[in-house]
């Protein structure tokens, strides 16, 4: 599996204006709902909020991986958002976040999800990829940064 199997260019948004954790999660929900119109933004948002309640998905170094399980979703779908300013996200290292890689998995398909996670982690753990993500100007460059 590759990033482009789960992430499409229309779910890749560079330098969004998000001033809070909640606002960023709302933007992600809207982006994914635009991509999959059968999913209401409120349903997507509540799946993300439900997960954040169990502990922040801010995994350090300015990166967060908000995720949720969604009933009725047919396959794993992802969104990549960067914010123009960093956002407080209760991250594990207490640093604010500017890279958000959101992942949505079908309800009841929790197993077999580790492989997807490992693939995404491999990308986000690569310093050059992160450098390209942070220096991307525009959605197309951002998509290229994560998929190349």
């Amino acid at each position: 599996m590759e990033i482009k199997d789960i992430l499409s260019p229309d779910c890749t948004h560079c330098a969004v204006q998000g001033t809070s954790k909640k606002r960023i999660l709302e933007i992600i929900s809207q982006v994914v709902s635009d991509h999959l119109p059968s999913l209401e933004p409120s349903l997507i948002l509540s799946s993300l909020l439900c997960r954040e309640k169990m502990g922040s998905t801010g995994i350090g170094n300015g990166i967060a991986i908000p995720h949720g399980r969604i009933e009725g979703l047919e396959e794993v779908v992802a969104a990549l958002i960067t914010s123009d300013t960093t956002v407080e996200f209760d991250a594990i290292d207490n640093k604010p976040v500017d890279i958000f890689f959101a992942i949505f998995v079908p309800e009841g398909q929790a197993e077999g999800h580790l492989q997807t996670l490992a693939m995404i982690a491999g990308k986000l753990n690569d310093k050059n990829t992160i450098k390209r993500i942070r220096s991307a100007r525009g959605n197309v460059q951002l998509f290229e940064a994560i998929t190349q």
């Binding site: 995994i59 580790l114 996670l117 490992a118 982690a121 491999g122 753990n125």
Partner: peptide, 12 residues
């Protein structure tokens, strides 16, 4: 120390 590193282990 690394959440990403640990996730890359794919420990099921």
């Amino acid at each position: 120390n690394s959440v990403l590193g640990l996730m890359m282990l794919e420990s099921s």
